[in-house]
Design a protein around this nucleic acid. Structure first.
Length: 179
DNA sequence: GCCAACGTTGGC
DNA sequence: GCCAACGTTGGC
């Protein structure tokens, strides 16, 4: 029988959200606009998400994030902090090329090309939100209370989003579901 | 600018 | 393997 033990904080697992009806899964990528903002991403049309140097995020990039998955592009450390728009994964995890580049700030001499330590995925811009969905707005929506982004101490720069959260946020952003 | 939360490093 | 010190992230 269940006892008080179950009152121990159930830490929401940051891995493996169930796929949505489409089989596609959803993610949120954080970026500081001073380093790579959504404007720039829109102009580029496509980018490699590299330079991630955290093992939990690495595991997602390497194992979980697949072609066609949906991505929310989020501005962190910004005014305002907000989801700016959506992207789609166009290439699943492969070796993070910046790790092998001695001139890159993300260079990691310990990453072996035959057994890379770090991974990147490629994403393409799909659509900007009609208006960014700010962090304050997200916090005000009861259905989004469990979002990884909004959890205390959550710092993961690549994180899972449930299909319900995805739908809610697209609606707030004014983007049609069928993208 | 502050600082809580978290991850990593390195001495033991 | 423990854990204190340190560095980083990122919201406030």
């Amino acid at each position: 029988m269940a006892t008080k033990k179950s009152a121990a904080r159930p830490k929401p697992s940051p891995t493996s959200p169930p796929p949505g009806a489409s089989g596609r899964r959803y993610w949120l990528f954080k970026s500081e606009p001073t380093s790579y903002g959504f404007d720039r991403f829109q102009r580029d049309g496509r980018t490699s998400w590299n330079g991630v140097r955290n093992y939990q995020a690495r595991n997602l990039l390497r194992d979980e994030i697949h072609e066609h998955d949906g991505v929310l592009f989020y501005h962190s450390n910004a005014a305002p902090m907000a989801v700016m728009g959506i992207a789609r994964v166009v290439r699943a995890g492969y070796a993070d090329q910046t790790a092998f580049d001695a001139t890159s700030p993300y260079h990691d001499p310990d990453s072996d090309p035959d057994q890379p330590t770090w991974f990147q995925v490629d994403i393409a811009c799909v659509a900007p939100f009609a208006q960014p969905v700010t962090r304050d707005r997200l916090k005000a929506v009861p259905e989004l209370r469990q979002m990884v982004l909004l959890q205390r101490g959550s710092r993961l720069s690549v994180q899972p989003v449930t299909s319900a959260e995805w739908r809610t946020i697209l609606r707030l952003g004014g983007v049609e579901e069928s993208w």
